[in-house]
């Protein structure tokens, strides 16, 4: 019991546990749709795409939070615009978006006379050091994301399953995609602010891959992924505490472990199931 409680009793233990669990659950749920729509590259890129907003804010002496908001907004609009380019896959348009945005940020920075310092340390959180404001804002944003996910669940499913039938089912493809992008942008912004970019990426893909391997129904998958995300996040606290590894890296490792374990479980389960099907036929 003490082994379980020791890390929490110490300084920052409880903060770390709460921030990782909350972000883990939120990101896990969003991750299912990131997996189904193939948007992991986008999620990874969004953390860099904030750069122009941040640089411009520091150049004009505005607060970094405003810069980050502007950056998020710009990233959202740019992604939406570039994704409309004809004959361009989602990955290619993401590549164009992030490269252009980061280049824009670097060019703005080059034209200012004071350097831009390590924005990441200013804006990007660290799971061990989330402030109450960060946590509250993150939790609020993720709650909004969760509600949106719940409302959009069936439409996301219909579009991911069969995009060609969307019109007939009266599902607006462009609206659903805009909502999907909004959800991803909000989740990434919340997660990055509370835990930093590496744990955010890991929590967005790892639990979802695990849930995908374990579940044959999307509805259950979202719950399982949220649960797996929370567990991966909480587990990372213990890994960081006992192995003495950085908290962010520990999150990535627990997420990878969860995905790997679930995939192995599925493989063994599947090979037995497959022989069953053959016998049935």
């Amino acid at each position: 019991m003490d082994a379980l409680l020791d890390p929490i009793r110490g300084d920052f233990g409880l903060t770390t546990l709460i921030s990782l669990t909350v972000v883990g659950a939120g990101c896990g749920a969003v991750g299912v749709w990131i997996l189904q729509f193939g948007r992991a590259f986008l999620a990874e890129s969004l953390t860099h795409a904030l750069l122009p907003g941040l640089v411009a804010a520091s150049l004009f002496g505005a607060s970094l939070v405003i810069g980050a908001l502007a950056g998020v907004l710009l990233a959202y609009v740019a992604t939406l615009a570039f994704s409309r380019a004809p004959k361009t896959s989602a990955a290619a348009s993401t590549s164009v978006t992030v490269t252009t945005l980061v280049a824009g940020g670097a060019l703005i920075a080059a034209s200012s006379d004071s350097g831009y310092a390590a924005f990441e340390s200013l804006l990007f959180g660290n799971p061990v050091a989330a402030t109450r404001v960060d946590l509250a804002a993150g939790a609020l944003l993720l709650a909004g994301v969760t509600v949106t996910l719940w409302l959009a669940h069936e439409r996301f499913g219909a579009l991911a399953f069969d995009p060609a039938a969307a019109v007939s089912l009266r599902v607006s493809v462009s609206r659903v995609q805009a909502v999907l992008l909004l959800v991803i942008v909000c989740a990434v912004a919340a997660a990055v602010n509370v835990t930093g970019s590496l744990p955010a990426l890991a929590l967005l893909v790892g639990p979802a891959i695990a849930a995908d391997a374990l579940c044959t129904r999307i509805g259950r998958g979202v719950w399982i992924a949220a649960l797996a995300g929370a567990i991966c996040g909480a587990g990372a606290l213990y890994l960081s505490y006992y192995a003495d590894w950085p908290a962010g890296a520990s999150v990535a490792i627990t997420c990878t472990a969860a995905a790997a374990a679930a995939s192995c479980l599925r493989r063994t389960h599947r090979s037995s199931a497959r022989t069953g099907v053959v016998a049935q036929r």
Partner: peptide, 14 residues
Amino acid sequence: DSRTGLLVATALAA
């Protein structure tokens, strides 16, 4: 896509 993402996270962590 998502496996690449997981691998990137793992590589950075490692």
